[in-house]
């Protein structure tokens, strides 16, 4: 499982990074995002709603992102 390390980066950078990486993996694949910015979790959930992907918080600074959007319109 690929880990995207965004520790120390401020939003929207972690969301931009995950959107760039998610288009490179197949539908159903999972990525792990590491981020300690307080805006990441609310923004990751909003991003998932807007782009049709699935996210989950695993730990304070660790998030699971599953590609569900098939059209590759994650947009960045």
């Amino acid at each position: 499982m690929k880990k995207i390390d965004c520790l120390g980066l401020r939003c929207p950078l972690p969301i931009i990074r995950i959107s760039q990486e998610i288009d490179k993996v197949a539908v159903g694949s999972q990525l792990i995002l590491l981020s300690d910015d307080p805006a990441t979790w609310p923004d990751l959930q909003a991003w998932a709603r807007m782009t049709g992907n699935h996210v989950q918080q695993r730990d304070t600074a660790e998030f699971s992102v599953v590609r569900q959007n098939q059209s590759g319109l994650n947009g960045h």
Binding site: R10, P42, Q45, A46
Partner: peptide, 21 residues
């Protein structure tokens, strides 16, 4: 958040589930 004094995102937008950045 980048405009807030304490660099935390808007608690209003976060509570609603709206994108904060």
């Amino acid at each position: 958040a980048c405009n807030a004094e304490d660099l935390t995102p808007s608690h209003v937008l976060a509570a609603m589930g709206v994108l904060t950045h």
